[in-house]
Write a protein that binds this DNA or RNA. Structure first.
Lengths: 116, 116
DNA sequence: CAAACTGTTCTATAAATACTAGAATAGTTT
DNA sequence: AAACTATTCTAGTATTTATAGAACAGTTTG
């Protein structure tokens, strides 16, 4: 599995790693039982610090998306399935927002606010 | 119009102000021509600094949602209409995400990622 | 068993961001 | 003219982000 990051993005690196895993889960490229690459491998491949990757992984654990243990790594849980189920709906919403000229941040903020 | 903010939220205050305006616009409580309360008033009411409010307003201007001029304040533009149009779709998506047990941050991040 | 791998925890530091504070400026409205 | 508005400037503090290295403690593999 491939994790991409843009250092000039403005959004924190750890958040981009989280978002990258979210995207893979939503697209069905990540299934329960799959193992994320080790934090050290990701840090090496991306040229970022181990702690930065671990912070992202810990957030994924807090969300319940992965199960983490020493020696075994980060294993994807069944909590990814809802993400895959929503994928289609999200894509439709994004497509419509795009035709309306809405910025990504604006829509994301709107979704977050609506949740409250 | 009412702007709410939670200092313990973790998300920056200026971002919460932006999100609050987004929400009002999406709910149709904000129409083209309406004037946002002056930055000084908002700062006073929320107990935050003037600059913090202005930063939020400037972001709204960058998004094209308001037109700002000295002496006149921040006036809502026609760019709020797409937000109102999406309101129903967003509410439906959020409702479904909620039944699936998805966290607000997770869904928002997913939407943002899908935009790319 | 032993080696290699995994996340966990700890201390430390540097850089960037967020927030506050005060003051002066320059437009607009009343 | 007075009261209002955003704009711009400098400045300081607190928080967040990212880096660095080391030691630790489980798990898996040979």
């Amino acid at each position: 599995m491939l994790i991409r990051v843009d250092p000039t993005s403005g959004t924190p690196i750890f958040a981009q790693i989280v978002a990258s895993v979210h995207a893979d889960a939503a697209a069905g490229r990540l299934n329960p039982g799959d193992r994320l690459p080790s934090a050290r491998d990701v840090a090496g491949a991306l040229g970022v610090n181990l702690h930065t990757v671990l912070r992202a992984y810990q957030e994924l654990r807090d969300e319940g998306l992965v199960d983490m243990r020493r020696g075994r790594g980060a294993v994807v849980t069944e909590a990814v399935e809802p993400l895959a189920h929503l994928h289609h709906d999200i894509a439709a919403l994004v497509a419509r927002a795009r035709t309306l000229g809405l910025a990504a941040d604006t829509l994301a903020a709107l979704v977050k606010e609506t949740y409250r």
